[in-house]
Structure formats: structure tokens, C-alpha cells
């Protein structure tokens, strides 16, 4: 759901640019106080994995495709602020190097996939995973939060398009929520699969201090 140039009007992309820049700035400041030797390489590996996985579009119904976003996975492994920073790095490089997502829409894309996708998604995960004990709670929370992160990001995207006068909300919202409700199932499955692999191979990584 990378928004290209031209879909958002000036007031919308400027506002979201300011909000995202402020949030990323805050995340940088807080992260610099918390980051340890162990988190540095994990940030690199996780960002690289999310970039690569985002290239793999899988087919969903009706001639549409979707791909993994990774915000909730990043936040579960390294914490919500690290999640925002990882998503911002991936989105900035996708925009500048691969023309995926417009330069004017970069703030909106960081807002949708970083702030909503990782930060908001993480707090849903925290709440949901505590309702069921143990690793089952982790998996159930991760699946639902991942699904929600996609649907909420798609809803935000629809609202931004509507505020920009590109398409009415009552047209954009059901269409975006509908297709991303399917893509979100893929998001949930991939997040749970990666977490269960890590749990089997290196469970200590799940205990990494969160940023």
C-alpha cells in the first residue's frame, strides 16, 4: 500500500510529513538511550529481511496481490520504537532507490506502515498476547495484531485519500479494508511463522531488550 506521488494533496502530505518526521525524531532520541550492543546487528538483519520479504507479492482474490509489511514483527522482536525506525529505513530506501512510494507521500507511508503498522500494532499485540498465557498467547496476539496492523494502515490510507479529495471515504474505505482484510491474513501467518522459527532456533532472541 505504498502511496505514490499524486494521490495526496499538499495539506495532507505536508501534515503527515511533519507528524512522521516528529515521531521518527522522537524514536531516534529514545532509541539512542536504550540501544545496546546486541540490538545493532539485529536491527540490520531485521530491516534487510523485511525489505526482501516485501518484494514477494502473493496473489489474493480478484487479480490483486499483497505483500508482507513486517511492522508488528519488527516491534515484537525489537520494540515499538525500533519498529518505527526499521520501517522508516525500509520505506526511505524503497522510495529513493526503487521509486516504490512517492517522495511527497513518504511521510504518509511512514505514518501508515511505521507509526500505525509497527507502533500501534505493537500495543494491540501487547494487550492481546496477555489474554492467553505463554507462547500460545504470543502467537494469537501476533496473528491478530498483524492482521489489524494491515487493516488499520489500509483504513488510514483510505482516510488520507478521502481528505485529499482523491476518492470519497465511503468508496475508498470498504474497498481498501476489504482487500487488505485478505492481505492481513498473509501478514498474520508470516509473522507467526517467523516467530515460531525463532522460538525453535534461537528462543533467546525473543528476550532481547525492547526499544
Amino acid at each position: 500500500m505504498h502511496i505514490p506521488d499524486g494521490f495526496l494533496d499538499t495539506k495532507t502530505w505536508v501534515t503527515l510529513g511533519v507528524v512522521s518526521a516528529g515521531t521518527v525524531g522522537l524514536a531516534l532520541r529514545k532509541a539512542s538511550k536504550k540501544i545496546g550492543e546486541k540490538q545493532i546487528p539485529l536491527m540490520g538483519v531485521l530491516a534487510a529481511f523485511i525489505f526482501a520479504a516485501q518484494m514477494l507479492n502473493f496473489p489474493v482474490a480478484g487479480g490483486t496481490s499483497g505483500h508482507f509489511m513486517g511492522g508488528v514483527l519488527a516491534a515484537i522482536l525489537l520494540g515499538p520504537l525500533a519498529g518505527v525506525l526499521i520501517m522508516a529505513i525500509v520505506l526511505i530506501i524503497q522510495c529513493l532507490v526503487f521509486q516504490d512510494g512517492g517522495l511527497t507521500a513518504l511521510g504518509a507511508n511512514i505514518f501508515n506502515m511505521g507509526i500505525i503498522g509497527a507502533l500501534v500494532g505493537y500495543y494491540f499485540y501487547l494487550g492481546l498476547s496477555r489474554m492467553v498465557a505463554g507462547t500460545r498467547g504470543m502467537f494469537i496476539g501476533a496473528f491478530i495484531a498483524s492482521w489489524l496492523s494491515i487493516v488499520l494502515a489500509a483504513g488510514a490510507c483510505a482516510a488520507e485519500l478521502a481528505v485529499s479529495g482523491t476518492v470519497p471515504l465511503k468508496v475508498a474505505l470498504p474497498a481498501m479494508a476489504g482487500v487488505h482484510g485478505l492481505i492481513g491474513i498473509g501478514e498474520g501467518l508470516i509473522t507467526v511463522a517467523v516467530l515460531s522459527l525463532i522460538l525453535k532456533a534461537r528462543p533467546d532472541l525473543l528476550e532481547t531488550e525492547k526499544i
Partner: peptide, 11 residues
């Protein structure tokens, strides 16, 4: 990877 348009593009 699937070449089909993504969710936003399709909408």
C-alpha cells in the same frame, strides 16, 4: 512474486 497490482493499486 505475483505481478498483479497490489491492494492500493487495484482499488
Amino acid at each position: 512474486a505475483s505481478q498483479s497490482p497490489d491492494g492500493l493499486e487495484k482499488v
